[in-house]
């Protein structure tokens, strides 16, 4: 078995917000997938269990009861209280935090993302579907039935459902994935595409990289620049959504998907950036599979 990135069979998970509707449901799905969910936290609900997982009032208490097992936290806490949970996890010493919660105020996210950076903590999200290394571990809400085959393709994406769609087509074509990372659709996120691509480059199991971007921000342009410097040896294939999105409008739940301020971020700018460094850009989601196949044959 290879290595994959971020999550693997050694991942032991704490679920913050475990007693809520989403937290409880996805705890069950993660357990069904085989993820080692060790404990949960909901203030005031300590002593209960959720799908057999013990619940504690604080992160510190959960960690004390399971030393030194817990190394990852997943957060389902509602937006108004989510920032507090992130600080609690960071201060308790957890080194990987996956934030599923959407609608967290951007200014809150900016502050905890910087705090995490200073503390050497990796944050995935907010507003993301999480991370899965197929057949090993899933820390997220990605549907179990899509991730049935491990293999050579690493996926990094700003989207949820679009990622499932592309993953599904890859698996249908017999191409498994090493790790799939949904980095989130907000303007400020903990880990960006470039950082994930660097991890894939280091990961011996990952042979090919799929980048699923969208309009807004300059993450794709900066990634392209890095690829252009020759530091990524593995083939990269991209797909960008939002070609038909009007400028200046926020596209639904992805607050980051907005083209404004003359700071780049348009569909054309991203496609051009990738093409200039010989990264093929698929015109449709299913074309990603075709492009990856050209490298694999």
């Amino acid at each position: 078995m290879g290595m994959a990135i971020l999550v693997n069979e050694n991942t032991k998970v704490l679920v913050q917000g475990i007693t809520g509707r989403e937290g409880s449901r996805h705890t069950q799905y993660m357990l069904q997938y085989g993820t080692k969910v060790v404990a949960g936290v909901t203030p005031g609900k300590g002593g209960q269990t959720v799908h057999g997982v013990p619940v504690f009032d604080t992160v510190e208490e959960a960690l004390r009861k399971f030393p030194p097992d817990i190394n990852t936290s997943i957060i389902f806490v509602p937006a108004q209280f989510a920032a507090d949970s992130v600080y609690e996890a960071i201060d308790a010493g957890i080194k990987l935090i996956v934030i599923i919660t959407e609608h967290i105020p951007i200014h809150d996210a900016l502050k905890f993302v910087n705090y995490a950076k200073r503390k050497g903590v990796t944050i995935i999200g907010p507003n993301c579907p999480g991370v899965v290394s197929p057949l090993r571990s899933k820390v997220g809400i990605l549907p179990n039935h899509i991730y049935t085959k491990s293999g050579p393709v690493g996926i990094v994406s700003r989207s949820g459902t679009l990622t499932y769609e592309i993953s599904y087509h890859l698996t249908q074509a017999g191409i498994g994935q090493s790790t799939v990372v949904g980095i989130g659709g907000d303007p400020i996120i903990g880990t960006d595409m470039l950082e994930v691509v660097k991890m894939f480059e280091e990961d011996p199991e990952t042979k090919y990289i799929v980048v699923i971007g969208e309009i807004g921000g300059t993450m794709e342009e900066r990634l392209a620049q890095y690829i252009g410097s020759g530091k990524v040896t593995k083939p990269v294939v991209a797909y960008i959504s939002g070609r038909t999105a009007p400028p200046g409008k926020r596209m639904g739940g992805h607050a980051g998907a907005i083209v404004s301020m003359g700071m780049g971020g348009s569909y054309e700018s991203k496609v051009k950036a990738f093409q200039e460094v010989n990264v093929p850009v698929a015109k449709t989601p299913t074309e990603v599979v075709k492009l990856i196949k050209q490298y694999i044959r």
Binding site: S157, G160, G185, R243, A257, P285
Partner: peptide
């Protein structure tokens, strides 16, 4: 009408494509 911003945008783009 789709679920998720990425998939919704991709669907719009496909219509255009």
């Amino acid at each position: 009408m789709a679920n998720g911003a990425g998939l919704t945008m991709a669907t719009m783009d496909l219509v255009k494509e």
